[in-house]
Amino acid sequence: MSLSPLQLCLLFSSALFCVGLIGALARSNTILVLLGVELMLNAANINFIAFWRFGPAPSPATGVMFVVFSIAVAAAEAAVGLALVIAIYRHQKNIRLQEAVRLKG
């Protein structure tokens, strides 16, 4: 079975996505959970570029635009997320996510 470049890129991004997901699910350190989420976002960006580059009838700049905006949003997310980490740390003196359960119903 031969895989097209597009499919290879998609496999790469899928693998990266799952690495991020497993990291986010497995680690108790909030910073790492956040970084796992960042990886997942990056995997999505890779998909945009892959489709833009190899996909059917690539449009001039749409994919690139998407990624640029996505990176901007990811940066905002990282800033807010890490601020939240610091807030959690100040609150409970550690950053174990499973202890941040004050929203429990």
Binding site: L21, A24, L25, S28, V33, L97, Q98, A100, V101, R102, L103, K104, G105
Partner: peptide
């Protein structure tokens, strides 16, 4: 009570 507050669980 399903809201455990456990972010891992949600994810």
């Amino acid at each position: 009570h399903a809201q455990t507050g456990d972010a891992h669980g949600y994810l």
